[in-house]
Amino acid sequence: MAHFDERSGIVPCKTKWGSWWQTIEEVFIEVDPGVGTELSGKEIKCTIKPKSIALSIQGNVVFEGELFEHIHADEAIWTLEDKRYVRICLSKAHDTAAHCWPSLLVGQYQVDPMTFDEMQKKLTLQRFQFEVC
């Protein structure tokens, strides 16, 4: 049986806090604070700017830094699902397959070369599918 990531076509980059992945137009971040953790929206602080992001859960910094490329901060959203998962969706300012991010933040959460190659292939295929439709 195929894993969900394979069926949905995403190529995730695993991190200590969860994972992130991208499409031509967006970057998705999924944070899993750990088994048994139940959160409320009040315990989450997410600051999203055109070139930076910061996420704290229960007063602990999960990540913060300069995004690899600019985003449309006014289109970004974050959600709390099942009182556990924090999901963030960022809209890329440059939405072409040529803008495949090799890392989420500058110098942090870099994709290994094999995964980056898979990400690039996925974005190229996605761009081709958009052009055909």
Rank of each mutant, 00 (worst) to 15 (best):
F63V: 01
F28I: 06
S56Y: 00
T47N: 11
E75P: 11
F68W: 03
P50C: 14
K92F: 12
A54M: 09
P50V: 13
P33Y: 04
K45H: 14
L67P: 00
E66F: 10
F63Y: 02
N60A: 11
G36L: 09
V35E: 10
F28P: 04
D32H: 05
Q58N: 08
R84P: 05
V31I: 10
L67K: 05
I53S: 03
I88F: 03
V86C: 01
V86R: 02
G36H: 06
F28K: 08
S91R: 14
C46S: 10
S52C: 09
R87S: 06
I88V: 09
R84E: 11
G34D: 06
H72K: 15
K49Y: 13
K49D: 14
L39K: 04
I88T: 02
V27R: 01
L67W: 01
F28T: 02
H70N: 14
Q58D: 07
S91M: 11
V35D: 11
K42N: 09
F63P: 00
V86L: 01
Q58E: 09
Q58C: 08
H70E: 09
P33H: 03
V31A: 03
I57C: 06
S91K: 15
V27E: 01
F63R: 02
T47E: 14
E64V: 02
V62H: 03
L39V: 03
P33I: 04
I71T: 10
L80Q: 05
I57Q: 01
E43L: 06
G41S: 07
K45T: 08
A76D: 13
N60W: 00
P33R: 06
N60E: 12
S56I: 01
R87N: 06
V86A: 02
S40R: 08
G41Y: 11
I88R: 03
Q58F: 04
Q58L: 09
E81H: 12
L39T: 04
D74Y: 14
A76I: 10
V61T: 14
K45F: 10
A73V: 12
Q58I: 03
Y85A: 00
E64L: 13
I77L: 13
R84I: 05
V35F: 10
V31E: 01
E69V: 10
V62D: 02
T79V: 13
K83H: 12
K92M: 12
D82H: 13
Y85W: 12
K42V: 11
E26R: 15
D32Q: 05
K45S: 13
S40D: 06
W78G: 05
R87W: 04
R87F: 06
P33M: 00
G36M: 08
W78T: 10
G34V: 05
N60F: 07
I71N: 04
I53N: 00
K49A: 13
I53Q: 05
I77V: 14
L67E: 00
F63N: 01
E66Q: 15
A76F: 09
H70C: 12
